[in-house]
Amino acid sequence: MSAPGSNDTEPWPLWEVFVRSSRGLSHLHAGSLHAPDAEMAVRNARDLYTRRNEGVSVWVVRSSDITASDPDAKGAFFESPRGKEYRHASYYTESEGVKHL
């Protein structure tokens, strides 16, 4: 597993920015930026990603604190849903035409 974003050649750590566009919605990944600490990262995120009312709340997470699935194993790692169509409502066709189902 690789710790994403950690890069010795950059003087400031990399932060991932998540923005909640309005109350009741999830924070979504908006982009990333470099900043010396969390406080500066939040301020910079506001200036960089919410200049037009894009959000009501901002999260920043150090990229190095994110654990990602191993990109080299992507085939196997996401294999299990394949062949399991019965997990989708569309698999069940005999109820076709029955109301409120």
Binding site: S2, A3, P4, G5, S6, N7, D8, L14, E16, H29, A30, G31, S32, S63, I66, A68, P71
Partner: peptide, 10 residues
């Protein structure tokens, strides 16, 4: 830029 962008290279 976006998520996977920075799930990047070390």
């Amino acid at each position: 830029m976006a998520a996977s962008a920075n799930m990047a290279r070390n």
